[in-house]
Amino acid sequence: MASDGWYLTDDVDRHLARAGEFLRSRPAQHTVHLTVTETLRSRGGRVYGDGAPEFGVLEGEGGGRAAFFRTPPHPLVVTSLSGEEADVLAGRLAGAGRSLSGVNSDRDTAAAFAAAWQRHTGADAVPGKRLRLYRLGELTVPRPVPPGRPRVAGEGDRKLLAQWHGEFSAATGETAVRDADDWADERVERGDLILWEAPDGTPVAMAGAAPKVAGQVRVVAVYTPAPLRGRGYAGAVTAEVSRVALAAGADEVLLFTDLANATSNGLYQRIGYRPVSDFAVYHFG
């Protein structure tokens, strides 16, 4: 362990051996860290992107008290830090010559780390998305339910899923670092993506679920093609994914929304999702 308390590694198993108990102590707030590291562990550390992953845990007498991971080119994802801890971490990474595209964390930590990164590197820090984490309370299926029915995406849907993956990435401003066909293959193999199909069998919306870790499941990839929006499909398919997660034994069902999208924030609250905390992304020049 370094004198600043941060233990860094590129081995996900070593990281989880040190940080796992801390991450599982607050599964909702640490949902991204838990699901990404579990996915990497299941792939044997293989990632899709520009470089190898890196992990860190801040250790004290009582064990881990903070952690981060980064999978280039994505921003650094870090758990809550004090202003001093954010400054120490920024200095450690800058001093080691790390190049960061940004930071993603709870609102206060993200702001503190962005300011610290500017001090240590001189790089610009541009505010990006503001996100809100929601937890499902009592599930309420939105009414009226649109015509059609839900079904699990299967072999015959791979081409459509790949197409929608690209459209979803573009619509949300996310950097698509993995091949769309690979993404579709993985979803079909895991059986964790649900389509809403019209009465004639045409898929009109999708929503997926991240793997269950520490009792929590996060709803992901909620997408309706632009010409089909406003008809209740997103609400119906999100409610179904949420129902399936609960039926499979999830203790918590979570999702993130972009705070700039008032429509989606209102929709998820009508389904039964309640705010947990706010997060922010900063991009570094």
Results as ranks from 00 to 15, higher is better:
1 M>S: 08
5 G>Y: 03
8 L>P: 05
12 V>D: 10
19 A>G: 10
19 A>H: 04
19 A>D: 04
20 G>T: 12
21 E>D: 15
22 F>D: 01
26 R>S: 09
28 A>H: 09
30 H>I: 10
31 T>R: 07
32 V>F: 12
35 T>W: 02
40 L>T: 10
40 L>S: 07
41 R>F: 01
42 S>D: 15
45 G>Y: 13
46 R>I: 14
47 V>A: 12
47 V>E: 04
54 E>I: 07
55 F>R: 03
59 E>N: 09
60 G>S: 12
61 E>F: 05
62 G>R: 14
66 A>T: 01
73 P>Q: 02
75 P>H: 05
78 V>N: 04
86 A>S: 00
92 R>F: 03
95 G>S: 01
98 R>F: 14
106 D>V: 08
109 T>V: 14
114 A>I: 02
114 A>T: 09
115 A>N: 10
120 H>Y: 00
122 G>T: 09
122 G>W: 14
133 L>I: 05
133 L>V: 03
145 V>W: 14
145 V>K: 15
145 V>F: 12
148 G>T: 04
150 P>S: 10
152 V>C: 10
156 G>T: 15
160 L>A: 01
160 L>G: 05
160 L>K: 08
167 E>F: 04
176 A>K: 07
179 D>W: 02
180 A>E: 11
181 D>V: 15
182 D>H: 15
182 D>V: 10
186 E>P: 05
188 V>Y: 08
188 V>P: 03
194 I>W: 13
201 G>A: 06
203 P>Q: 07
205 A>W: 11
208 G>T: 10
210 A>E: 15
212 K>H: 13
212 K>M: 15
213 V>W: 06
213 V>E: 11
214 A>I: 15
216 Q>P: 08
220 V>T: 15
221 A>I: 07
222 V>K: 03
225 P>V: 02
230 G>F: 05
241 V>H: 03
241 V>Q: 01
243 R>V: 12
251 D>A: 11
252 E>N: 06
253 V>T: 06
257 T>Y: 00
258 D>G: 00
258 D>N: 11
261 N>H: 07
261 N>I: 13
262 A>I: 10
268 Y>D: 01
269 Q>N: 11
271 I>Y: 00
271 I>M: 04
271 I>V: 12
273 Y>R: 04
276 V>F: 05
277 S>Y: 07
281 V>D: 01
